[in-house]
Design a protein around this nucleic acid. Sequence first.
DNA 1: CTCCCGATAT
DNA 2: ATATCAGGAG
Length: 211
Amino acid sequence: MLIRTPKEVKEIKKRFLTHYPNAKTELNYSDLYQLLVAVILSAQCTDKRVNLITPKLFQKYPTIFDLAKAEVKDVEELIKSCTYFSNKAKHLVNMAKMVVEEYKGEIPKDEKELVKLPGVGKKSANVVMIEYFGKNLMAVDTHVFRVSHRLGLSSAKTPDKTQQELTTLFKTDLNKLHHAMVLFGRYICTAKEPKCKNCFLKEFCVKERDT
DNA sequence: CTCCCGATAT
DNA sequence: ATATCAGGAG
């Protein structure tokens, strides 16, 4: 269902883009391998925490080939301050093994292939496509999902559906909008106590606190 | 739909 | 002490 008029959508889009002109991920990385690892670790975990973990991890495993040969227990030790560390340690090593064995060590460059990797779901694959390859895609994480609902841009019950709706509504600059909406959700339209005083989209808030 | 499961704010 | 944050796999 469409709550926002096309004119309102345009205005919301414009404000996101002007308030966050240079939005990008807050994950630290220096190449595609590091970005993919950081994104896998960031599932249900804050970027801040991931950034605390990755320096030592990348020092011990500088390339995907090193990670493919790693002991899961050693990886666990390095990422244990991260939520679901046990699953993620397995995913990281298995992901690296798959890339080495099935893709000659070359991390795939499209979403369809990325999603096949252990620990990589739709949101993570989209984030990599947006961040590294600059693709015009909308990735829907918990922030984008919440913000979309509060702004009346989506009433979908699943992130997948919200992604389709946002893609249809915005059409262009989806990658920039993704980053902008994440930052907006993380620092202003927060899950718990939204900073409504600092909100530059107040007038579009449906004021329904889900959950 | 359940499990996974640490850190931080309250 | 407890509620809340934050995605993917089986």
